[in-house]
Design a protein around this nucleic acid. Sequence first.
DNA 1: CGGAACGTTGACTAGGATCAACTCAGGTGG
DNA 2: CCACCTGAGTTGATCCTAGTCAACGTTCCG
Lengths: 265, 265
Amino acid sequence: VTPVAQGVPQASPRRPGGPLTPRGDRDWPTRGIGSRSFNPLVERLRGLGLSEAALGPLRSLHAEVRNIPAGGPIIREGEVAARLHIMLEGWSCRYTSVDSGRQSTAFLLPGDICNLDALQDMRLPYGVNAMTACKVAVLRIDEVRRAATGQAELAWALFRLACDDNRALVHRAACLGRRPARARLAHLICELQARSAAAGIDVGGSFMLPATQEELADLLGLTAVHVNRVLQSLRADRLVTLQLRWLTILDWDALATIADYAPDP
Amino acid sequence: VTPVAQGVPQASPRRPGGPLTPRGDRDWPTRGIGSRSFNPLVERLRGLGLSEAALGPLRSLHAEVRNIPAGGPIIREGEVAARLHIMLEGWSCRYTSVDSGRQSTAFLLPGDICNLDALQDMRLPYGVNAMTACKVAVLRIDEVRRAATGQAELAWALFRLACDDNRALVHRAACLGRRPARARLAHLICELQARSAAAGIDVGGSFMLPATQEELADLLGLTAVHVNRVLQSLRADRLVTLQLRWLTILDWDALATIADYAPDP
DNA sequence: CGGAACGTTGACTAGGATCAACTCAGGTGG
DNA sequence: CCACCTGAGTTGATCCTAGTCAACGTTCCG
C-alpha cells in the first residue's frame, strides 16, 4: 500500500473534546425531564410574524424538555405520536425505513419541528433520531389542537410551516432523482452552511457537521462508502475540509457551481 | 433482427379512439374560458369534513374554468402564481427542472390542488404540465386569502391538505433514494390504481394511465429507456398489461410484493 | 486488551444511463 | 394520394456511476 500523501488534512473521526457528545453512548435510559413553563413553539411562530395576541392561547401550554443522548430515538418509526417535538439543541434526522436501509428526508436543527404533521394525523410514516445529544421540547398534541381551535391566525401559520416543509421535500426529491452524488453532497454542504449561518451557529465559512458519513448517505440516497469517496474527491479538489466533525468551505463559488445551489432570498 | 414473440401483447402507442386526447396537439392558443360560478375548492374541503358554515366564505369566490390541451402548461416553472389551480378533469404532473432533465414530484388527478403552497408564497419552485387535456379551476389567490382571513376551521383544513402533500413527498423521496427501478415502477402502478379506484375512474383492476414513458421516467427518477425495459420485464412476468394507455394489473399480490406497497387505510 | 464505531481504501459487480437505430401510427402539406 | 415528419415505443451495445464485499487503521471505551 502506498502511503498516499493527500496534501489535504485527513479527517480524524474523533475530536478530542468539543461541543459534540461522542456517538458511543447508545444507552438512553435516562431522558432527563427538565420541565419548565416556557414554550418554543411560541418562539418559532413569532419568528413568522405572528401577533402576540395570536400567540396567546399557546402561552399557557406546558412544554416538557427532554434530553436525548446522541443516537437515541426522538420519535420511533411507526409510532402513534401523541406529542409534538421541537428541536431546541443538537441535530437530528427524520428518516423512513425501506427494505434496503433507510432514507432520511431531513436534518432537523434547533427551531425545527420534528413532526408537525402529527397535528393532523398521529400515525407517522417516519421516525426521528438524535444525531447529537439533543434537547427537545415536547408538547401534548391534544393540548396544542385545543389551543389552536378557533385561532385562525395560528392555523394559518401552521399551514405556512407545512408549506415550507413541502418545498424542502420537493427540492430533496429533485436532488435524489436527478443529480449525481457529487452534486448532491455539494448541495447538502451549501445548504447546511446556510442553515447554520441562519441559526447563527457558524464561524465564518465553517460550521459543525455532526453527521456520520452513514447518516449523510441516508439523506443523500447513497451508501456510506460512496459518500466517503465523493468527500475525498471534494477534499482533493480543495473545495472543503472536514475534520473533527467541523466542516470548512474553502471555495464557495466552485462548490455552489457543482451543487447548482441557489439560496432562496 | 429476430421477430421476437413476446407472448404478451405489445403496447400499441396510439389508441384508435378513446377518452384520451392525442398528444400531438401542441397548439394551446385557445384556452377556452368557461366561467361559471361554482367552486371546486369548496368540494375538496367538504370532503375533509368541513362544516357548511366554515365553507361559507369560500362560496362567494369566483372560479374560472380553463381548458388546457394535452401537453400544455398549467403553471409555468418559476412563475409567480397569482392563482390557485385545482384539477377538475384529466391528469397533470408537477415537476422541477434540474440540470439534467426534469424530476416530477407528483401526478395530479381530478380533485388535486396544483399549487396549494402558492397561498403562502407565490414564487413557485415547480411547474405543472397537462398530461392529457385538462379542465382546471382557477381562483385568485388574493381572494382566497381574503376569504380565509379569520376562518380558523378553513385554515386548519388547508394545513391538513399541506400535511397530506407532505406525506406523499416523504414517501416519494424514500422511493427515489432507496428503491430499485422495478420496485419504483411497481409501486407507482399500485398507487395509481388505488387513486383511480378512489376517484371512481377505474374499471375492475384496470385504469387509464395517460402518462408517456418519459413522464413516468421523470416521476421515477429514471430514463425513458429504462422505464421501457422495466415495463417489458413486468409484462414478461405477466404482472401487468399496458396497451392503448390502459393499464391492467394481472397479479396484484405479486406486484404489491415487488412494490412493497401498503395502502394507508 | 479487546470490541465497537467510524473512516478509509481496493477490487469487483451491477443497475441504470447513454447512444443509436429502427418501428409504428398519425398528421401535414405538396 | 403519397412523401415526409414527429412523437412515442422498442431494442441492442456500451459505458460509467454507485453498490457490494472485504480488509484495515484509528479512536474510544469497557
